[in-house]
Each structure stands twice: as structure tokens, then as C-alpha cells.
Design a binder for these strands. Structure first.
Length: 649
RNA sequence: GCCGACGUAGCUCAGUGGUAGAGCAACUGAUUCGUAAUCAGUAGGUCGUCAGUUCAAUCCUGACCGUCGGCACCA
């Protein structure tokens, strides 16, 4: 006698166990048509599931977020059926729903290409049109294995073999096609609708392990209706326009070329942006008590052997040999050993701790060719690195201080939101389990103190310690780790760093590795995409374009440009023999934030006509006032903030 | 590194087994025109690199390099 409680609080009682389909029909024909699945006591299940006992039931219709995920999952099944109909002999593996869509991994001798898409999509539409019901059935473990092996589906058989013995093994049938699946699904293939599209093909390792065979993955996107699909596709197009590689080229910020794979050639405008960010960071860390140092680029392998990098990361290091000397040097892949070498000079006292040694350190890492991506992932980059040597007692306070600094920096660059991940001990690591226990718990406590909310990223810590990862998102939704804070009890031990404690004993300091931008290259890539090249005035590589209307104004325009430059602004003087329309267009396309137009009238009145990027309005301003105002507006946000001292005065 | 696609002028792209074109940009000249493209002319490419097939290769084949989309990797 199940009593079913609906979201509005009403209760319906049935004489015997009932399916969701029956319940929906009992409530009304509208719901019967709209219900795709249901949540029974919060658990999403097939509409045809039978409710045995009292339960709270929520019906899922097309409007619900859960429906979207089911559309995508069902769509993956239809994709698999279509592929197997069209390409007999192809084995199916797994096909989940993902953000914005779904994929399915197939095992086939010949990988798919985008040229196959038209036929596959047509077949998918045909299958959706058949509107075959999704039918769930439970199968015995051994039968299931035998069933899939008989069909030549060895991947599916392997999946069942690896399921825990307690797991109920379910199959879903749609028409003649059957897949191993946990479910749930909607009522029938027709519920998917037609707002789907195959997007790309890719290789992917079976079970995500590079030692396994490579499968052919087909990605698709699926939505509730055509309007949503169109909006998504349009969003992707827009996002492509923000791509830092596109903007970097169009604005002349940087380039990459074959002879220096993975290294950036920064052009004047790009380098201006780079330096603006670097200068900003120098001020911020100086304000937080960091001392800047610089350590050698080329270091003997002996040091890397001591630090443990040689053993674990040699294949990622660029080596340098000199014929005259029997030595192997390595370009530093990171700055930490250098920082420890500085710490080790002389005898350190507990009174010096925490000692915050910062370095804008150029690092080189031989990244796998397939990992390279524009300026986001390169082989030569600059870290805004720092190493904080402190006592265990100081970890929490330093973490809090760091998170505050990082949050403030990200906010200044237009990233008020960011994600934090806590990465704990990796499979290959240095240090004892006891050390790791201590390090992980210290960092977690520090997070509590700092009020940092994180998600767990298991097994992704550095080899010497756990880390916090601060993640920013690019234009197309890809996540990139930028900032990080890493707790390290290992390197001080390996490289023998110590200080004299209050009681005269020698102690090991704890080392905190931390970056905020992470890599300048990556951060700038994200920054470019964040603003789509339309930087706020303080960041813009060219801040003002002074453009003349007639050549009679050339002299005055030159004067204007000089005045602005004296005020510290980056100015492009455009005396070219073009119409003002063309000049406005050109500088607008270059995303120059302010165009100062100068004609006869301005020259006579000693004014400028200011036009802001993206606006059409012009503002006639006396030259002196324009210079003062723009200089003030172009002040970096950290310098524009009143300091405590000024506030007190 | 693995799977797939791609590589033609500075940029965006077209094209063909008989050694290449367009638009924009560049350069020259004319134009001095008040807020998103003034007109005309000129110049510019061993078609990613190296082999092979062919009477003949930018086009076909192979290797390599690079780029792109994923996967794996990311100290």
C-alpha cells in the first residue's frame, strides 16, 4: 500500500506497488505526457520503475536540469546504436553524459573521422524517430559476461568482470540494441528530441590509461530544444573569438614559431602587458614582506639529484653539456632548490622566520608535445614564485596571508571567482607516510583557518607535499591551474636547510612553495581571454591613440602625445594620411581603450575629443584635464587604493 | 607520447599532376576629408621540411617538423 507524497505535499495511496507511469497517469494526462523519469526519495530512476513502499516522488520533465543529463546519456546510447548499425564489428565501451553533451568510446580498427558524422547523425535521427522504449532488465553476472563475449564485446565483458560482486547488473534495450548500463533512462528514444549534434572525434585510452589500447571517441552535444542548441553553438563561436591565440595575433602581442617550440616571442605590446602584470606583482609581494632573489638558470645535475628531481623528473628537464667539462647541467624546471641554497647560506635564526624569498624565475620543462597549447602550456615560462621558510606553527598564518593576497590579486585582474582544489599525496612521492599525514593535516587546518572551501583532487599533490590549486577558467570553459600553495617537509630535509631555534637546537624549517599568477604566460593567456583583448585602461598595452583629422593638427597632436607620455601613459600617435573614420576603426579593432581625436578645433582650443572603446560618445576636454584624468584612471588598482597610512592621516 | 585533422603571400582563404590566385594588410601616388574601411597603382609566395613515384609534384606516397581537437602528462 505505497503512499506517495508529491512535491506539493499531497499524498496518493495505491493498493499495490505501482510504476511511475501509473502514478503519473493517475495524477493527470498532462503529467503522463510530460514525465520522463522520476526521483524516488531523491534517487533518479526510470519512470517505469515500480514503487514498492511509501516514498516521496518528484516527476522529472523536460524543464528540469536532470532531464538534460538524461537526454545526453540517452543520446550516447543512440549514438552507439547508430554506429554499430553503420559500422558492424565496432565494439562499444562506455558513453557517459558530460558537461554540455556526451561522448561514446568505440573500439574499431579504423578510427572515425568527422566525415562519418553526417551518416551517423542521420542514423541517430532515424533511431530517435523509431521511438523505441528503453527497457531495463537485470542479468546475472556470468550470464552478462557470456552474453557480451558471445557478441564479441570484450570491453563490456571486462566492465562486468570488474564490477563489485554486490552490484546489480542491468541491461537497457532500445529496439534491437542492448547495452550494459546502470541507467536510468527516459521512456524511449523519442524523448531525446532532435537538438543534438556530433562535435568532434578524438582518441582516448581505454579506462584512461596510456598503457591500454586507444579507442575512438565521438563527442556530441545535446539540448532540450533547437533554441538551446543554437545558443550553445553560438556561444562556442563567440568563445572562439576570445581565443588568446587569435587575439594575440590580431593585436600583435606575441607569436610562436617552429624553431622555438613551446617558447613565446613577446612583441612590444605583449611585453608591455607582461611587464605591467609583473610590476604589479612586485609591488604586491613587496607589500607582503617578500624579499626578491634571483637564482641560476643552469645548475649541475648534482643538485637535482639531491633534491630528488633527477630521479623523478629527469625526462622533463632540458640538459646542457659543455665539451670542455665533464659535467651535466640542467636548465631549472623549478626554482625551489635555488631558494633553499640561498636559505642555507650562513646560519639562520628562528627570528628570521617566516622568511619569504620571492623569485620571478624562468623555468624550462620538456612538456610532451601533445600538451602544448598556445601560451597556456609552454616549455619556457616565468613563475611568480616564492618560497616561505617557516615553522610548523606559522603554516596556518602564512596560508591565510597568502590566500588573502591571492584573492586580492585575482580580484584586481577581474577574477573575483576562482576554484580551489586540495591535492593530496601522489602514488610516487618522497617522504614518509608520517610526514605526509602531518603535511596534509596542517594544510587542511590552515584552510579551515583561512576560510578556504576546496574540492578534493586525490593523488595529485607534488611529490614533496600536498598542495592547494587555484583554478581559473578560459573562454571555452577549460580549467587551468594558476595559483598554488604547496606544503613541503621533504626538500628542506633533502637539501639540509635548518635554523637555530629559540632553545638553541637546530630545526628543519617547513617550506611553502607558492605562486599566484603561476606562469606569467598562462595567466596572460587567461587574462587575454577574460577581457577578449579589451583590457581595462591600466592593463592596456596601448592606452591612448592620438589621431589627427587634418595634417594641420600634426604639431598639436604630437604635443598631446608627449604630454600623455610624460604622465606615464602608453600612447600611439597616428598622423597617418587617412580619414578619421578609418583611424577610429583601426584603433577600435586594436582595442585601444581611449582614442583622442585632434582636429583644427582642438588645436585652436587646446583640447582633445575623447572617445571610449565600445562607445560612440565624444567628450571635448581641455588637454591638461584630459592628461590628469587619464593618468588617474590608468593607475593600477593597488596603487589607487588608499593605504592605511594615508587613511590614518 | 598516443589517435585524428590540418600546414598555399604578413592575415583570412581559393585552386590545379604541366612550377599559383582573391580580399585585407604593406609600399607608392593622389586625396586634408569631424568619429568603425577615400581612390588608383606597385610589390610580395623555392605552396612546412626532406625523400620517393612520374616526362613533369604545391597536388600522389612516405618520413619528419609544427599547429589544432581530444587522450595521457602537468614536479
Amino acid at each position: 500500500m505505497p503512499a506517495i507524497t508529491l512535491p506539493d505535499g499531497s499524498v496518493r495511496t495505491f493498493d499495490a506497488p505501482v510504476s511511475g507511469t501509473t502514478v503519473a497517469a493517475a495524477i493527470g494526462p498532462g503529467l503522463a505526457r510530460a514525465a520522463l523519469a522520476m526521483k524516488v526519495d531523491g534517487k533518479l530512476v526510470d519512470l517505469s520503475s515500480v514503487i514498492e513502499a511509501d516514498a516521496r516522488v518528484v516527476f522529472v520533465t523536460r524543464k528540469d536540469e536532470d532531464a538534460l543529463e538524461m537526454i545526453r546519456h540517452d543520446c550516447a546510447h543512440v549514438l552507439a546504436e547508430a554506429v554499430q548499425e553503420l559500422f558492424p564489428g565496432t565494439q562499444v565501451t562506455i558513453g557517459p553524459s558530460i558537461e554540455n553533451g556526451f561522448y561514446y568510446d568505440f573500439a574499431r580498427n579504423e578510427p572515425f573521422t568527422t566525415e562519418d558524422f553526417a551518416a551517423i547523425e542521420a542514423k541517430m535521427r532515424e533511431i530517435v524517430g523509431r521511438n523505441a522504449a528503453f527497457e531495463r532488465s537485470v542479468i546475472d553476472r556470468d550470464e552478462g559476461i557470456a552474453f557480451f563475449e558471445a557478441k564479441g564485446e570484450k570491453y563490456k565483458a571486462e566492465l562486468i568482470r570488474d564490477l563489485p560482486g554486490t552490484e546489480v547488473i542491468t541491461l537497457y534495450r532500445q529496439g534491437e540494441w542492448i547495452d550494459l548500463c546502470r541507467g536510468p533512462h527516459m521512456r524511449s528514444t523519442g524523448d531525446i528530441g532532435t537538438a543534438f549534434k556530433l562535435m568532434k572525434v578524438a582518441g582516448a585510452y581505454w579506462r584512461g590509461d596510456h598503457r591500454n589500447p586507444m579507442l575512438s571517441r565521438i563527442y556530441g552535444t545535446a539540448w532540450r530544444d533547437q533554441k538551446e542548441l543554437d545558443a550553445y553553438l553560438h556561444m562556442l563561436e563567440e568563445a572562439e573569438k576570445r581565443d588568446h591565440r587569435r587575439i594575440g595575433k590580431d593585436m600583435g602581442l606575441f607569436h610562436l614559431q617552429e624553431e622555438a617550440t613551446g617558447s613565446v616571442f613577446w612583441h612590444p605590446k605583449g611585453w608591455k602587458l607582461y611587464r605591467t602584470c609583473e610590476d604589479y606583482m612586485r609591488r604586491r609581494i613587496a607589500g607582503d614582506g617578500y624579499l626578491e632573489v634571483k637564482t641560476p638558470q643552469l645548475v649541475d645535475r648534482v643538485l637535482w639529484e639531491k633534491s630528488g628531481h633527477w630521479e623523478k623528473y629527469r625526462e622533463h628537464m632540458f640538459l646542457a653539456r659543455v665539451d670542455e667539462e665533464d659535467k651535466t647541467l640542467a636548465l631549472k624546471p623549478m626554482n625551489c632548490p635555488g631558494a633553499v641554497m640561498i636559505f642555507r647560506q650562513g646560519i639562520r635564526s628562528y627570528r628570521e622566520l617566516p622568511l619569504r624569498l620571492a623569485e620571478f624565475g624562468a623555468c624550462h620543462r620538456y612538456e610532451p608535445s601533445g600538451a602544448l597549447h598556445g601560451i597556456m602550456r609552454v616549455r619556457s615560462f616565468l613563475q611568480d614564485d616564492a618560497h616561505i621558510f617557516c615553522t610548523e606553527d606559522q603554516i596556518a598564518a602564512e596560508t591565510v596571508k597568502f590566500v588573502e593576497l591571492l584573492s586580492s590579486v585575482y580580484a584586481d585582474f577581474g577574477f573575483p571567482e576562482f576554484r580551489v582544489k586540495f591535492a593530496d599525496r601522489p602514488p610516487t612521492r618522497a617522504g614518509t607516510d608520517a610526514t605526509w599525514d602531518k603535511a596534509e593535516s596542517s594544510l587542511k587546518e590552515a584552510c579551515v583557518t583561512a576560510g578556504v572551501k576546496y574540492e578534493l583532487n586525490p593523488g595529485e599533490g607534488a611529490f614533496y607535499g600536498p598542495k592547494l590549486e587555484f583554478v581559473l577558467r578560459d573562454a571555452i570553459g577549460r580549467d587551468w591551474q594558476c595559483g598554488t600553495l604547496q606544503l613541503d617537509f621533504v626538500l628542506p630535509e633533502r637539501l639540509d636547510a635548518e635554523y637555530v631555534a629559540e632553545d638553541g637546537s637546530r630545526r628543519r624549517p617547513v617550506m611553502l612553495h607558492r605562486v599566484i599568477f603561476g606562469s606569467m604566460e598562462r595567466f596572460l593567456g587567461i587574462l587575454i581571454e577574460q577581457y577578449a583583448g579589451r583590457f581595462p585602461l591600466w592593463l592596456a598595452p596601448v592606452q591612448v591613440a592620438v589621431a589627427t583629422i587634418v595634417s594641420d593638427a600634426d604639431g598639436y597632436a604630437t604635443e598631446v602625445a608627449e604630454a600623455l607620455r610624460r604622465a606615464g601613459l602608453s600612447v600611439k600617435l597616428d598622423l597617418s594620411n587617412q580619414k578619421i573614420n578609418a583611424k577610429v576603426r583601426e584603433h577600435s579593432l586594436q582595442h585601444v581603450p581611449v582614442i583622442a581625436v585632434v582636429g583644427r578645433k582642438e588645436a585652436e582650443q587646446r583640447t582633445v575629443a575623447l572617445r571610449r572603446l565600445g562607445g560612440e560618445a565624444q567628450e571635448l576636454v581641455p588637454l591638461d584635464e584630459a592628461v590628469a584624468r587619464l593618468a588617474r584612471e590608468a593607475t593600477a588598482p593597488d596603487l589607487a587604493r588608499p593605504t592605511l597610512v594615508q587613511g590614518a592621516a
